[in-house]
Each structure stands twice: as structure tokens, then as C-alpha cells.
Design a protein around this nucleic acid. Structure first.
Lengths: 346, 346
DNA sequence: GTCGGCTGGTGCATCGATGCACCAGCTCGA
DNA sequence: TCGAGCTGGTGCATCGATGCACCAGCCGAC
């Protein structure tokens, strides 16, 4: 099924078919147009992507580089991004970096070599230096779940939830319930997002007159590479044990994300406490499991669907219509989802 | 960076470079070979995939069609499949069917039109009729998590865990612990896998002399489309409530999968029972969450990594070396993972 | 000396779509 | 009557890699 056969069937030249296919039909007789469209339908013609890409240098494939789709959070992103892309005829090439910077770079280079000029990058790295060369050659990059940094390329688009506000909402929820001894549980504050979330936490405390430096405990375990997901839950579990050993354990705990929060819940239960009664726990992300756990987890929802759609829209406009090349940051409004894991202190 | 430039740099013709690239170097002087290799390194040359594909009709991309990567189970598959493919220079194109048969077919057709000749299909559908036309044209299909059926195409490869054995292991574990009143919780037994799991359940019961027809209760809710994941947990929760209302509630419960099992746990807790003490629950799949839940979930593990690797290997051998075109079924041995949710009856 | 056979390469048509440059045919104004 | 200007299309070179068919050069044998 080539463009030639369509042209023959419609009684025109391949060029004319190509013109129609590519929207150059301003001065085409409606009748001609219909003949071509009928021929396309009749033959079930589909343009050959390889040929098209070879000729134009463009692709309708975008790359998605995530730490691991094994993690439901990234899985959800992949799903929504793909859905947005599909609606416009784009494909998503999935790449798991496994949080390995080298693999991250290799992937992006290979994508570029394959003609993929737009990539959604979910990097845990504070610097994007390793992909700068390609960005300078024209790679369109959208950083997801990572706010812009001073050293970032000028054309970079960053899409993220407003982490500070999110964690402020979470913390305020606890103080509104009457909690006064609060803890923030996280791995090393190595990423921008984590720092932001911590900032929101302290800000909320200050609003109700609590001095963060006295009543807060923020376990910082492991080194900066400690970004794992299963590990996040183990970290939470260990942190909970530590907190329980304190003279005056906190009654409310804000976790860096849901996996970590689930670990905290486990740790508390290990210590004989009941989450949602003896201690309140808030997570972040609102992964599917949050609503399945026992007790269901109060958390801060990231509007994944909207964020994924925005990521695709940004890429698309820059790839197709050669939209703005100026970088920008999109900060989405997070939403507090109150469930069973939080309550007034006993 | 074209093959031309490499040829010029090495002082040979493009054909010679192409010959080397494609392993036709039997009668090539080692010296020539080295010159070319040096030129490739020096220029950082990468063959253009589009051109290659246009010429040969082949791709190094395989398709993966899953219900939704939002589900950790499929996310894990995607991750492992991609990993196996990457090692051989292949890419994985991710497609979420959202359990929509039409979307499933559309995706596969589009993949085919794009030159993707190998697809791993995770379909909930009992019949593969909708993709038969493409299979007849040469599409290589690996059905994942679905055992072969009588009406399947002859060339089909099926990869699945041995569901009957798995659920037999799960059930035997309960009877070994001393449980005698058992229940099997599942949605409609609409898929082959579900039927198989149920078969394993009854087989294990018969082995210890329990008449399945009397002491078993298998709630069948919703219609055949009821394959959802979040829904699976809700189903489990409702089923647990039903079971508790019985005169003699079961002391051991085998769930169709982990999500369902988690729902059962919730339901039991709703009824004031303690899982792993008052009632034992076994799941299936061993998703990450199984080890995070409270209590941790005894379950049947599917060797995902090995299964994903096998799926890729099968596709690869059929695509590249034009390996066996004869279909086959690979049944993997499941493994019982004992955790906290099971114990001897009170 | 010439022919067969081998070695180590090369020439060229080809895959399918694209889009620039061009062109035939017609209208209209001066 | 001529040519400028417009309409509705078409011709052709091109993207980069492939691999079949071919070829120059050389050796040894008859």
C-alpha cells in the first residue's frame, strides 16, 4: 500500500496525494480531494513512517525516560502520557533509567539518534549537564517532577506539582486537627522537590507558631543516591521505629511520598500503634495503593492526568509548530485527599 | 553522520561499510575492517534506523500491549521486558489497551503498519480472533499471562505461569496449616487463567479429602468485563463481608490475585477479624505491595523477570533468525511466598 | 597463454514519502 | 495580441542504508 498505488487509483500523481496528506490542499479542487480520500479508504492506505521520517527527519514518537515503570507513580505517568500522545497520533517510547545517570544519558542519546526529538525526562539528578549537548543540537526536553534550576538549559520546560504548597497543605491538615508534635520523614533532601516539600512543612509549622527546629525530626538516612522505591518504604519503617523511641514521639507524621508513608504505617504498627488513631500519617502522590491500604492513606494528590497532558502539549507545540523555544515552568496545584490515616490526636 | 562519511573517512565504499555492519565480513581484510571500525568510532556514527527500516522492512522495535501500566503488575512486566530488549539493542513501544478490545486491535494494526513485526500481547480476551488477519500476514505474537486456546493461531507463543499449580500451592499451604473451611474469591471465571486457578484450588482440596462442592464458596460478581484492578480489591472486600455472614465462615481464603486479596483483607478487618490470626489469606502475583501491606501477604510469585526474558527471546528468535514458526506454550513454575497473612487456624 | 576459480571489494537500483521548482492552461487588462 | 498573474497540479532529486550482481586482479593448472 504505497502512495503510488493511491495515486494511480485516484488518477493523480503521488505528489498530489502527498500534498493532501500534508495539508497543502488550499488550491485543490474539492473533487480531486474526494477522489484521493476515497482511494485511501478503499486501499486502507497508511503512510510508511520510516519513509516519512527518513525524508523529513521528523518523528511522531516521543521518548519517556522514567526511573522505573515498576513504580506505580511512574506507571501512572506513562499511562496518561501515552493516552495524551495517542490522541494526536504520537507514540511513546518507554525507557527505564533505573535511576542510573549513565543509562539515562545513553537512552536519550539513542533516542536522538533514532530521530526522536522530544523527550519527557523524569530525572532524579539535580543537574541536567549530561544531556546539554543534545539540547544544544535541538532536543526538546520536558523535565517532569522536577522544578527548574539555575543551571538548566534555557529552553527547558519543567512540569511539576507545587511541592511546597502540597506539603504545606498536608502539614496544615495535621495542625488543624490539633497535632503539635510533628515529624517529617524523608531520605536525604538531595533533590529540589524534596527540599521544597520540606520547606512547605516548616512553613506550615511556623504559621501556627511552632518552632520547626525544636519539634521536628527529619530522619536523613543513606546517601544522596538513596532514591529507591521499595527502599522508600523501608526507610519509612525504620524512621517510624526511631520516632517511637523518642521521649515524646510525634503524633503526626508527614512522609516524603506515599511509598515512604506506607513504610511509616508499617513501622508504627510494628510498634503497636494504630495509624489514624494513635498517630496520623500523611503521604504525597496519591498512588493507587493509597486508597487500598488499611487504613486508607491521607495524601496530597498530584494531578497526573493534567500534568501528563501538559507535558505532551508542551513537547508537541515545540516539535510541530516550532512553538516557543523559551523555557518555562508549570507548577500544578496539588490537592489534599483526606482519608483514614489522619485524625485528631488522642 | 552517514555511512558515506564513514566510507570516505576509511577510504572504502559505502557498500563495504554496510557489509561490515551487517556481518558480511567473511572475506574482508582485517586491516580494512579496522580502518572502518576506527572511522566509525572517530565520527561517532550511528546507522539511521529509519533508512535501515525503509530498506529492509525490519525494525528493532517490539510492541508491548498491556491493559494498563498503571497496574504494578504490568509495570513490572514492562520494566523487565524493556530490560531484556535493551540488552539486544531492541526498543519497546508501550501501548495501554485499557482493556478495550477495539483499542487493542487498533494498536496492533498501527504497530504493524509501522513495521513492528513482533508484539507481546497481554489480552484479557479469550479469543484472539481480532488480530488473526495480521498474524496471517506474518505478525509474530507472544501472548503473555494467557495460556493457549484451541482457536489460537498456530504460530502463537503463549507465556504464562502455571496457574493451576500456583493456586494448588496456595491452597495446599492452607490445608497444610490445618485449614479445612476454605473459600476461593474471584470475579467471573471468564478467562482461562482464572479457570485454571480455580481448578488448582479444587484439586488441592480433593487431595486432602475435602469435597469442593460443599465447603467452597466462590463469589462470582459482575459480568465478564469485570477485570478491573481497583475493582478487584473492591470485589474482594465485598466478598469478605459476604463470607463473614455465613454460618460457618471459612478460615482460609484463596484470592484470584493480590489486589483482590488486599481487598479481602480490608473486608475482614471491616468485620473485626485479624488477618493472619483469625483468618488466613493467600494472594497471587506477588506485586510489590504484597510485602508492604499490613500484614504482609502470603502469595504465589510469578517469575516476572524470567517470563519477560522468555517473551523477548521468543520474539527475537522468530524475527531475526526466522526461528521456529510453530507455536508453543511456556508454563513457568510459580513459587509460594509465605508471609504474615497465613497461619494455623485459631 | 588462457581459463577457471578465488579474493576483496564496489556500483547501482531500491525502499516510500516529500516538497521545491516548474508547467500547462486559462483569464483579463491594456 | 501579448504577457502578467493565477489555478491546479506534476516531475524529480532526495533522505541513508542495503545487498545483489558484478568486477579487477591474481594464482595455479593444463
Amino acid at each position: 500500500m504505497t502512495i503510488q498505488q493511491v495515486a494511480t487509483e485516484a488518477g493523480v500523481s503521488p505528489s498530489t496525494v502527498s500534498n493532501l496528506l500534508n495539508g497543502r490542499n488550499h488550491r485543490m479542487l474539492p473533487e480531486t480531494r474526494q477522489r484521493i480520500e476515497r482511494a485511501i479508504d478503499k486501499l486502507g492506505y497508511r503512510p510508511n513512517r520510516a519513509a516519512r521520517q527518513l525524508r523529513t527527519g521528523r518523528t511522531t514518537t516521543i521518548g519517556l525516560v522514567v526511573p522505573s515503570v515498576g513504580n506505580p507513580f511512574w506507571g501512572a505517568l506513562a499511562r496518561h502520557l501515552e493516552s495524551a500522545a495517542l490522541a494526536e497520533g504520537y507514540h511513546v517510547l518507554l525507557c527505564n533509567s533505573e535511576r542510573d545517570p549513565r543509562r539515562e544519558r545513553d537512552y536519550i542519546e539513542e533516542l536522538w539518534a533514532d530521530g526522536v526529538h522530544g523527550v519527557v525526562l523524569c530525572s532524579s539528578l539535580p543537574s541536567l549537564e549530561h544531556v546539554m549537548p543534545l539540547v544544544e543540537r535541538g532536543l526538546q526536553l520536558v523535565a517532569f517532577d522536577r522544578t527548574s534550576q539555575a543551571g538548566d538549559p534555557a529552553s527547558l520546560v519543567s512540569i511539576s506539582v507545587d511541592n511546597a504548597i502540597g506539603s504545606q497543605l498536608a502539614t496544615k491538615h495535621l495542625t488543624d486537627l490539633g497535632h503539635r508534635r510533628l515529624a517529617f520523614v524523608s531520605g536525604a533532601l538531595a533533590s529540589v522537590n524534596r527540599k521544597e516539600r520540606y520547606r512547605g512543612f516548616t512553613a506550615a509549622l511556623e504559621q501556627v507558631g511552632i518552632d520547626p527546629s525544636t519539634s521536628v525530626r527529619a530522619p536523613v538516612k543513606g546517601d544522596a543516591d538513596d532514591f529507591g522505591d521499595v527502599e522508600a518504604s523501608e526507610l519509612g519503617r525504620a524512621a517510624a521505629a526511631e520516632l517511637l523511641a523518642l521521649e515524646e514521639p510525634p503524633t503526626g507524621i508527614v512522609a516524603i511520598n506515599d511509598m515512604c508513608a506506607l513504610g511509616v504505617c508499617r513501622g508504627l504498627r510494628d510498634g503497636g500503634l494504630e495509624v489514624g488513631k494513635d498517630v496520623s500519617v500523611v503521604g504525597f502522590d496519591d498512588i493507587v495503593l493509597a486508597d487500598l491500604y488499611a487504613p486508607t492513606l491521607t495524601t496530597v494528590r498530584q494531578p497526573m492526568k493534567e500534568m501528563a497532558a501538559a507535558a505532551f502539549a508542551q513537547l508537541r507545540s515545540r516539535l510541530d509548530d516550532s512553538g516557543p523555544t523559551q523555557g518555562q515552568s508549570l507548577l500544578f496545584r496539588p490537592e489534599l485527599i483526606v482519608r483514614e490515616s489522619t485524625a485528631a490526636p488522642a
